[in-house]
Design a protein around this nucleic acid. Structure first.
Length: 795
RNA sequence: GGACGAUUAGCUCAGUUGGUAGAGCGUCCGCUUGACGUGCGGAGGGUCAGCGGUUCAAGUCCGUUAUCGUCCACCA
């Protein structure tokens, strides 16, 4: 054993250990058919800004599982990735450079994107390494690499050929700020103050009051709806209604969806105010009147407000209505509107030609897939089910943006029919590669598709990306479904859902067997930590530099899976430092008594106290394994904490101390028995803690255990696999602890030192355990400093 | 409006086959114990949100109410 420093210097040790792991390739993936594969589908973090403590929290929890599985004998395949294309990254680049994508040539903007995202990625990677992540960094992928482009385009072509991906002209959710179509999953809701404006339409020369929040869409009104049961309007249904200000007429129709008690019970249907309008246009075969343009301005042919932005147009219309005495009243109203999650802009619905992936018709299959996956914690499945059941739109995958994977598609110049690239020419950018061929209509001129894939369209194939990587290592058979997916609960509706959808199309099966759904770190109730808010001023880098990675990891493990936590720096510091120091000191003590230890020597007899702590350790190993098999790293950690702190340190070590120090009194064989026990128990505790605090445990292992064990890293050692637990010896230990506690209480109440000698101490035990106590008499006397032991048999 | 979770000691939370309420922090008292005072021992502190039910027995199971939180839906 090398000397133990007086104090453990985590910051220095962590750098040393990381270097040691890298040099010795401790975590490199090596194909090995003799061991079962455990493959992990980790979220490639979106490169949209710097990482915060929340990322550390959830990624670390999953990383611990990788370590656990490795120590259980699995060949762990744990690649990492970066999701570095698409709108989130574009917005980062726009923020960083102050340049808007639409203001410079596309190629130039994409160049800036690559530059910025690469800078962030190297920052991410450094951070993960500093945290001691046991990934194989040779397996890193990026979602904008040319290989990913190839696989993503291939995925699209396969779906298009099977008819699961299709193009159609249709109303689509549209962000006028980002000027692109978006998907249902990208909506956030926001509470907004607005006004309900009561406007007089006319029917039969009578006024028909209609309340609306969007008067700027008056020109787009195609009909008015009332509920078929509404007595007030029964005799008017089918007649024409005149739209004020514009003085054109539209029919009065009925639909069940209209709420009788909302507003005046009459609704104007404008194309398109909301999703209900879209449904109505379809179900009632209504015409479309364009009002809002993709850039958020009012169309040129709309009188009074042409060219204005939506909000200005609304103001202007209200001014006009008031001027012409056409505004009956305005009520203040707070309602929730859908906004684009990336920029907070209220979404519009605008018809355009977009590519979709069919999900609506596959609900049943997707729900069945949800049933087949093991969700941890189980109730997270509800979120998935809830989402699938409430789908309203097929998944729109085309984005009118710049830095993304191009659609491998061209269109015939005359008939607009799309033609697809062939798989062997991927990756392809149609803007750079013309299509050579002849359309079925005879035309030989083609225009390239300018849109790019939604980022999720690519990140949803991470299992396929991982498979591609695995294939390069000669691993493919049985790779799918992967062992597990880890992610936070907020992206169940996006990443988990899309991955399952794609997997069903590509493999006909689920993408992974288990889904480990982590919680979130919040600054305080309801407040998410985000880089745009000041609550994230403590960057992970600063936290690590100040408190060490092990401290943060240990804290991050203190969570119930799927449950959100609040970040409290004091709490993190206190609990982690305590444990790290305790582990250091106890290891120092134990190893100082193992100088002459021979792991090959089996003592003739293991004393009862030693048998007890060994059995307790085995019991803990079983409990910890059971929790970790369910991804409950927090509950598992608690088991180790209790074993280590209470039983091993506070009791067992105190019990055997004297035996270790004084073989002349207790006997040499008895000392060897104690050595046998402390060696096994501390090593087991270190192994269990290794997944949480990999640096310190490795450092202690290298100092004191490596020579005994042989493996060059604690992280390559295997967990013991205890058999059945001996309940009798556990009971013996409990009673022994009680007896010691009685003595301690006595001394405490008398304000005596624990070293004070006492005349006698009593052990109350059942008859069948008395033999064990008699065999432990010297231990008990040494620990209690009692000159005599009195036995009371009970039970 | 729908779904899910939470409600246990002053604070943060454990308590997974129903069987005498637990930990850490904080408080109070004590102990310089040949690993650790960044420690150790002890004490105090809880009608386990309310109500009802099942049971010999309920923090634990069922029903219901309340409060908080999250996801989804409400956009006329």
């Amino acid at each position: 054993m090398t000397e133990f420093e007086k104090r453990y210097d985590g910051l220095t040790v962590e750098k040393q250990m990381q270097k040691y792991w890298e040099e010795n390739k401790i975590y490199d993936f090596v194909p090995d058919k003799s061991r079962p594969l455990y493959s992990i589908d980790t979220p490639p973090p979106t490169v949209s800004g710097s990482l915060h403590i929340g990322h550390i929290f959830s990624y670390t929890q999953a990383e611990m599982i990788a370590r656990y599985r490795r120590m259980c004998g699995y060949n762990v395949f744990y690649p990492f990735g970066f999701d570095d294309n698409g709108l989130p990254s574009e917005r980062l680049v726009e923020r960083e450079t102050g340049i808007k994508a639409c203001d410079i040539p596309r190629s130039e903007f994409c160049g800036k994107c690559i530059e910025v995202t690469q800078r962030y990625e190297s920052e991410f990677m450094d951070l993960w390494k500093t945290m001691g992540f046991s990934c194989d960094w040779n397996l890193v992928y990026s979602t904008c690499s040319s290989n990913t482009q190839r696989l993503s385009q291939k995925s699209f072509l396969e779906l298009a050929q099977k008819g699961h991906a299709y193009i159609k002209e249709s109303p689509v959710l549209w962000c006028t700020e980002c000027q692109t179509s978006i998907a249902q999953a990208e909506l956030d809701s926001k509470e907004l103050d607005t006004h309900f404006h009561y406007i007089p339409f006319t029917i039969d020369g009578e006024v028909l009051e209609i309340a609306t929040t969007r008067p700027e869409l008056l020109f787009g009104v195609v009909c008015v709806f009332v509920n078929p049961e509404d007595e007030r309007y029964k005799d008017k249904v089918g007649k024409m209604v005149k739209v004020p200000l514009y003085d054109f007429e539209v029919p009065l129709l009925t639909d069940d969806k209209v709420a009788v008690d909302k507003g005046t019970g009459a609704v104007m249907c404008a194309t398109f105010g909301d999703t209900t309008d879209v449904e109505w246009v379809e179900s009632h075969a209504l015409p479309y009147k364009k009002v809002v343009l993709p850039d958020g301005k009012i169309a040129a042919d709309v009188p009074f407000i042409a060219g204005l932005r939506v909000k200005a147009a609304r103001k202007e219309i209200i001014r006009l209505l008031e001027e012409k005495n056409l505004l009956i009243k305005s009520e203040q109203l707070t309602h929730i509107v859908s906004v684009h999650e990336r920029c907070g802009t209220e979404v519009e619905i605008i018809p355009s030609r977009q590519w979709y992936i069919d999900v609506l018709s596959k609900r049943e299959e997707m729900l069945a897939a949800g049933d087949k996956i093991n969700w941890y914690p189980a109730q997270m499945k509800n979120r998935y089910v809830n989402w699938v059941e409430n789908l309203k739109w097929d998944w729109c995958i085309s984005r009118q943006r710049y830095f993304g994977i191009p659609f491998p598609v061209w269109y015939c110049k005359s008939c607009e029919k799309p033609v697809l690239a062939s798989i062997d020419q991927l990756p392809v950018n149609p803007l750079e590669t013309p299509y050579h061929g002849v359309c079925s209509c005879g035309c030989s001129e083609f225009v390239p598709e300018k849109a790019v894939f939604d980022t999720w369209a690519t990140s949803s194939i991470t299992p396929q990306l991982n498979l591609d990587t695995a294939e390069n290592y000669g691993v493919d058979e049985g790779f799918m479904p992967m062992s597990m997916r880890t992610q936070a609960h907020e992206i169940i509706r996006t990443w988990a859902f899309y991955t399952i959808a794609k997997s069903l199309y590509h493999t006909g099966d689920i993408p992974w067997k288990d889904a480990m759904i982590c919680g979130f770190v919040l600054a305080k109730p309801g407040e998410k930590i985000s880089k745009s808010k000041s609550n994230s001023k403590l960057s992970p880098q600063q936290l690590i530099a100040q408190y060490s990675a092990d401290a943060i990891r240990y804290w991050a493990a203190n969570a119930r899976l799927g449950t959100d936590m609040y970040f409290d720096i004091q709490d993190m510091q206190d609990s982690s430092r305590r444990l790290i120091t305790k582990l250091w000191n106890s290891s120092k003590f134990v190893l100082s008594h193992l100088q002459d230890f021979d792991p090959a020597y089996q003592p003739a007899q293991i004393l009862p106290a030693d048998r007890w702590i060994i059995e307790r350790t085995n019991q803990a190993i079983l409990d910890v394994s059971r929790w970790l098999d369910e991804y409950e790293i927090g509950l598992a950690r608690k088991i180790v904490d209790d074993l280590f702190w209470k039983d091993l340190c506070d009791n067992y070590i105190e019990i055997v101390k004297d035996r270790l120090y004084q073989p002349d009194i207790h006997g040499e064989e008895e000392r060897k028995s104690a050595q046998y026990a402390i060696y096994y128990c501390l090593l087991s505790v270190l192994k269990m803690y290794a997944i949480y605090i990999p640096h310190e445990t490795e450092y202690i292992y290298l100092k004191g255990f490596k020579d005994f064990v042989g493996e060059k890293s604690i992280h390559l050692t295997q967990w013991a696999k205890p058999m059945e637990i001996d309940g009798e010896i556990i009971r013996f230990g409990e009673i022994l602890k009680d007896a010691i506690a009685e003595v301690r209480k006595y001394k405490s109440e008398k304000n005596l030192s624990m070293r004070t000698e006492i005349d006698n101490a009593t052990v109350v035990c059942p008859e069948n355990l008395k033999g064990l106590f008699l065999a432990s008499e010297k231990d008990f006397m040494a620990c209690s400093r009692a000159k005599e032991v009195i036995y009371k048999v009970e039970g």
